[in-house]
Design a protein around this nucleic acid. Sequence first.
DNA 1: GAAGCGTGGTC
DNA 2: TGACCAAGCTT
Length: 324
Amino acid sequence: MISPPLATPTRQVPTTATQYADIGALQPQRVLDWYAGAARDLPWRHSGVSAWAVMVSEVMLQQTPVVRVLPMWTAWMARWPSPAALADDSPAEAVRAWGKLGYPRRAMRLHAAAQQVVTRFAGNVPSAVEDLESLPGIGAYTARAVAAFAFSARTPVVDTNVGRVLARAVHGRAQAGPSVAAADRAKMELLLPAEPARAAVFSVAVMELGALVCTAAAPDCPACPIRPDCAWQLAGAPAHAGPRRRSQRFEGTDRQVRGLLLDVLRTTSEPVSIGDLDGAWADGAQRNRALDSLLLDGLVGQLTDGRFVLAGERTDTSPAIMEL
DNA sequence: GAAGCGTGGTC
DNA sequence: TGACCAAGCTT
């Protein structure tokens, strides 16, 4: 198959063979034009949204679909419009308000991050990637996402969507390989438009392309703006060649038991006895193991009378929480 | 680098 | 229907 001659006069002139391959496959202008017409209207993308609001959205979106984040983000922004507001509340309330978003350690770390923003950065979410990465629960992706989307920093933002788009469009492979984020960031850096604000939009546009069109299971290639240049398409859309990813089971794991135990503690404002947790899971040994891990993670605290509460719960009628 | 960490939707 | 998947982080 021969790709058609390029009609766009704006194509950048590559200076090396490597750049030629990258630029040829993923032209920023085409992705930007597509994004202008296809982007979802998500509230954290609105102009004037605070860096804190962007940061909360990014943490909530870690491994969690947009449709489930939307109502939680709205509620969090109404209740805790600033890092100081969250820091002034208890970690237990953060975990409780996290509801069933999943990975509740994110709520605890977000609360800890808010406290550090207050103590280390005068209550202002920092704009430097290095400072952002120093906060609990903020890793390589989230730090760059906040820097780019809240502060218009010209920095490559690579998530699972971008990784998959690069794997297909640039490398001609069906899936992204494991642990290639650093290499993908280097590739994206070559592609970023020179103007920082435009670079940030390009990043979110590639993410959106991966989320809406270049999806994992069933990509909608006819709707793709870069289909004519996609290396995977030009190679005939070969199936994934490597080893199959280990699928993560959930039923019967400690993970499930932790979730059930936490659900009990989240639903009540009263301290809970070990007997009240018996009903959450029949296997006592596994229940105790899960409970221990929750205590170790700091998600659950134990009162001096032996009962359990969400960590950091403010219980003025109860004995002080024991330090683990 | 692999494993652990929630929850629910999809095909 | 069960395997896969969803804007990762930490150890």
